[in-house]
Amino acid sequence: MTSLPDAGVRPACPADAQAIAAIYAWHVANGTATFDTVAPDEATWAAKIADFATRGFPFLVAEREGDVVAYAYAARFRDRAAYAHTCEDSIYVTRDARGGGIGTALLLALIAAARASGFQQMIAVIGGGEPASVALHGKCGFAHAGRMRNVGFKFGRLLDTVYMQRDLREEDPSP
């Protein structure tokens, strides 16, 4: 477990599914970082956590005082064999825990876990080009890799997707 002043990072377990579902549901209803318009239920998240464990993909949570306040995971970027060493990350933090360093600690822990899982490249696909997510990924060593304009439609407007990339074979940056 990675320690923070008031939080810790650990592997997710199926018992975390309810908290993860609630975190993601808030982002679906209120943000553009995801283009989902209907949030998956708790059972879907529990199955995903179990599937990731079986496949050896990292799925982490950050806790503060026993409550899950953020989660992150990495899975293969695409299913084709040529992409076997490239993963895509997802990270979501509760609105109350943003800005306190939890996202940075969690993403750095995910980078290390993805590297240990055999991934060599990590891709961030940032819906809406969310400035906080772009800044977080930049702080953790990701470089801008591209922008797809007007590919999503949510909350009555067209949205871009920003791609960022991190070579997992390189040393970790010091945020």
Rank of each mutant, 00 (worst) to 15 (best):
R76E: 05
A113K: 03
A70H: 02
F57R: 13
D89Y: 06
F77Y: 15
F57P: 04
I102W: 03
D96F: 07
R98G: 12
R80I: 10
K48H: 06
K48F: 10
A43D: 10
G56W: 14
G100L: 10
T86C: 13
Q121P: 03
R78D: 09
R98V: 04
E88W: 06
D89L: 11
A114H: 07
A39F: 00
A46C: 04
V61I: 10
P58V: 12
A53K: 15
I49M: 08
Y71D: 13
L107F: 09
A53R: 13
R64P: 01
G101K: 04
P40R: 01
Y71R: 08
V69Y: 11
R64S: 14
T37Y: 04
I49V: 12
L108C: 03
F59M: 12
A112D: 15
A74H: 12
D96T: 13
A82D: 02
S90D: 05
G56N: 12
Q121H: 05
T104Y: 14
D79Q: 11
V68H: 08
G101Q: 04
F119D: 11
G103Y: 02
A105G: 13
I111V: 15
G66V: 12
T37H: 04
A72K: 11
R55H: 09
A116M: 11
G100E: 13
A81K: 13
A116L: 08
G103K: 02
L106N: 14
A53M: 12
R95Y: 00
A109S: 14
E88M: 04
D79Y: 05
F77H: 15
G101F: 09
V68Q: 10
R78T: 00
S117M: 06
R64Y: 15
Q121N: 12
A112Q: 14
L106E: 08
V38K: 00
V93L: 11
G101S: 08
V61W: 13
P58G: 14
I91D: 02
G103T: 02
A75N: 10
A46P: 01
D67I: 04
R55V: 00
L60M: 13
L106H: 10
A70R: 03
G56D: 08
I49Y: 12
D89P: 00
A43M: 03
R78E: 05
G56L: 08
R78F: 08
D41S: 03
R95W: 01
F52A: 08
A81N: 04
A62E: 01
A81C: 07
F77I: 02
F59C: 09
L108H: 03
I123Y: 06
R55P: 01
Y73T: 10
I111A: 08
R98Y: 00
G118F: 06
M122N: 04
I49Q: 09
C87A: 15
T86D: 07
A97C: 07
R78Q: 10
D67M: 05
A53G: 02
G56P: 03
R76M: 12
L110V: 15
A47R: 14
I111D: 10
G103I: 01
D51I: 07
K48V: 11
V69M: 09
F77T: 00
G103R: 01
G99T: 06
R78V: 03
G100I: 05
G103V: 05
G99S: 07
Y73C: 15
A105W: 06
R64M: 05
A105R: 13
A84V: 03
S117I: 01
G66L: 13
Y83W: 12
V61E: 11
G103W: 01
A70Y: 11
F57G: 05
V69I: 05
C87S: 15
